[in-house]
Write a protein that binds this DNA or RNA. Structure first.
Length: 291
DNA sequence: GTCCAGGGCTCGC
DNA sequence: GCGAGCCATGGA
């Protein structure tokens, strides 16, 4: 892979296992929006970035080599060999063989722990477009203005302090619905009790899970998503309706409970369970498997 | 009106 | 530690 800077952009030439549609639409993130030219613009780490694909080149627009080295290299998990991961998954069974071919360019982003905590509380019993809307509203209302890009204004995700200053009613006004009380309670807990969510990455998967489950509005599924997308716990397997469908279609009985599906997958996919989950989720959702 | 979404909480065993 | 009900909002 060749990396160089030109015209306020960083170009990645010949990067393996990288497809922007797969990455941004596999359900792991909520703040990346597709532009008219098929590129994606989003906010992460308090910066606005646009990502564009042209042939075998990936253009990271509105950034420079310094930010690439400090932020984006890690954010896009470019230090991990996804070819190797996919090959191991392919050897497991025919369904993963298909799913990894289908979503060949997926990478699990290393996103902000706190942002994942609140985002996936909002996700509970909700739809993806509604989740995106609520997060946008919260950011616009309580986050810092970062700047403009391509004629649009962008805001950072609010910090724990910024969000805890909001009332339950103000949070609800951002279209969070009945989850308003969960968000308020969690924001207060993190801001006031100094619950150090940024330290949970250092804990092992089980300890991390126990800490996250203490928050109001965080159950098994939400907890697994935060662990996987915010804390690099790859030996987790979030089971939502889509994953339940694809698992029942290919692996287990119709009447198996969610906790048992989770246990089954952890046992079967082991250290790679989180990666398997992403490929299966994207495969199931894009193809409408089980509906 | 009915159904459903990247579920969580509470209770009873 | 489980399973079963109950709870909840907004869009299609």
């Amino acid at each position: 892979m060749k990396i160089y800077e030109e015209n306020n952009s960083v170009v990645l030439e010949g990067v393996e296992d990288f497809n922007i549609k797969h990455i941004f639409e596999c359900g792991q993130c909520f703040r990346w929006k597709k532009e008219e030219n098929e590129s994606y613009t989003g906010v992460a780490k308090g910066k606005i970035l646009n990502v564009e694909e042209k042939g075998d080149k990936i253009y990271l627009n509105n950034t420079n080599l310094e930010d690439f080295n400090n932020i984006w290299h890690d954010y896009f998990d470019l230090g991990t060999n996804y070819t190797e991961i996919k090959n191991k998954l392919k050897e497991m069974d025919e369904y993963l063989d298909k799913a990894t071919d289908f979503g060949w360019g997926i990478r699990i982003l290393k996103q902000d722990q706190w942002e994942m905590l609140i985002s996936f509380i909002i996700s509970s019993n909700n739809r993806i477009p509604m989740i995106q809307k609520a997060i946008d509203n919260l950011s616009k209302k309580f986050g810092k203005f970062i700047g403009e890009y391509n004629g649009k204004e962008y805001y950072a995700f609010p910090t724990p302090q910024e969000l805890s200053r909001a009332s339950k009613e103000e949070i609800r006004a951002c279209q969070t619905g009945f989850r308003d009380k969960y968000i308020k309670s969690t924001a207060d807990a993190v801001a006031n009790n100094n619950d150090n969510v940024y330290g949970y990455s250092m804990l092992d998967t089980e300890q991390c899970r126990k800490e996250l489950l203490k928050f109001n509005g965080v159950g098994p599924k939400v907890c697994d998503c935060i662990s996987l997308f915010g804390m690099q716990k790859y030996d987790t397997f979030p089971v939502d309706v889509w994953v339940k469908r694809v698992m029942q279609e290919f692996y287990v009985d119709e009447d198996m409970s969610l906790p048992k599906i989770r246990a089954y997958a952890l046992d079967k996919f082991g250290e790679l369970a989180g990666f398997a989950q992403q490929y299966l989720f994207y495969y199931a959702r894009e193809l409408g498997i089980g509906r």
